[in-house]
């Protein structure tokens, strides 16, 4: 797909999100969640480029969400809280990345899963600090110094999510075309050659890991600001699986894929849950099966007009 077509598609996509949020007020919340998860899924997609699947990235989502919950009392400004939470998630990504970037495939996936479950347990067990499974309320925050009432607050988070989504999509696009981003795919196909070229594969993967942690952290901060309530479930392994699901559904062939996947996922979930209450997982499963069988490149490849 040409740059121009992709940019046009992204623009149409952003306008559609805004239009839908304007026309159907209750969709604002759903779309904000979808954009946030799209950003996190974009991070998971970066790792997928290197052939590595993380089943633990919800840890960074939950970490940043709790960071917002803890700091919102002292730092009451959303435009400060967001970058702070993203930075903290990136730092955690660096520490954990130094360890997990040494492993590949099933070991990489399971290590991420194990670490995320340790973090989940910490959130759940340290009741005196985290209030356990009850979770924590996020105090009201200001946006650029303005106190927002309910509707204004919803719009503020949605627009912030949209701006961050576009920003991270652009960043990911540049990154994937850069030497380090292109080398990611080399980890999947011929890691030893990277070694023999003098390019350390671990460092190549670490950069992607830190970026993906920052993106998952962005999602967590946005979700905390929009739901105003954080619980350990945000970091449960099913939430990590959801992110992988979204990438497969949307397609890993382009940076728009995860966002298409996230919107489709959230909409199917909301409408299916409303109409066939107990069967929504069945419907999502059937959708995923259809994607894997008939459109391996995900929804993105359908839009592009050919199978990736």
């Amino acid at each position: 797909m040409t740059h121009r077509r992709e940019a046009l598609l992204a623009l149409l996509f952003a306008l559609a999100v805004l239009a839908a949020a304007f026309a159907v007020p209750w969709l604002r919340f759903v779309l904000t969640l979808a954009l946030a998860k799209g950003i996190a899924a974009l991070g998971v997609m970066l790792l997928l480029r290197a052939g590595q699947v993380s089943f633990g990235h919800a840890m960074f989502v939950a970490f940043a969400a709790y960071a917002v919950a803890f700091l919102a009392g002292q730092v009451g400004e959303a435009l400060l809280l967001l970058p702070l939470a993203i930075l903290l998630a990136a730092l955690l990504g660096l520490v954990i990345g130094l360890f997990v970037a040494r492993y590949r495939e099933i070991f990489f996936g399971m290590l991420n899963l194990a670490l995320s479950m340790v973090f989940y347990s910490l959130l759940e067990k340290f009741y005196s600090i985290t209030h356990g499974t009850d979770g924590m309320r996020v105090p009201a925050v200001t946006w650029a110094g303005m106190a927002t009432e309910r509707v204004g607050g919803e719009w503020a988070v949605l627009v912030a999510a949209l701006v961050l989504a576009i920003g991270f999509a652009l960043l990911a696009r540049l990154y994937l075309a850069s030497p380090l981003g292109e080398a990611l795919q080399g980890i999947k196909t011929r890691e030893a050659r990277l070694e023999f070229m003098g390019l350390p594969p671990r460092r190549v993967l670490l950069v992607a890991y830190v970026l993906s942690a920052a993106m998952a952290g962005t999602a967590g901060a946005l979700i905390a600001l929009t739901t105003r309530h954080v619980t350990p479930l945000m970091g449960y392994w099913t939430a990590s699986g959801e992110l992988v699901f979204i990438v497969i559904l949307g397609g890993a062939g382009g940076v728009l894929g995860p966002f298409l996947g996230a919107i489709a996922y959230e909409l199917v979930r909301v409408y299916a849950a409303a109409s066939v209450a107990d069967a929504w997982q069945l419907i999502l499963g059937a959708v995923l099966l259809a994607v894997i069988l008939f459109a391996r490149g995900g929804l993105f490849s359908l839009l592009r007009g050919r199978r990736a």
Partner: peptide, 17 residues
Amino acid sequence: ALAIAAREGAFSLLRPL
């Protein structure tokens, strides 16, 4: 190009390969 980038020690995230 990847070999050349490796030789040049190119760790830029934003400039294209």
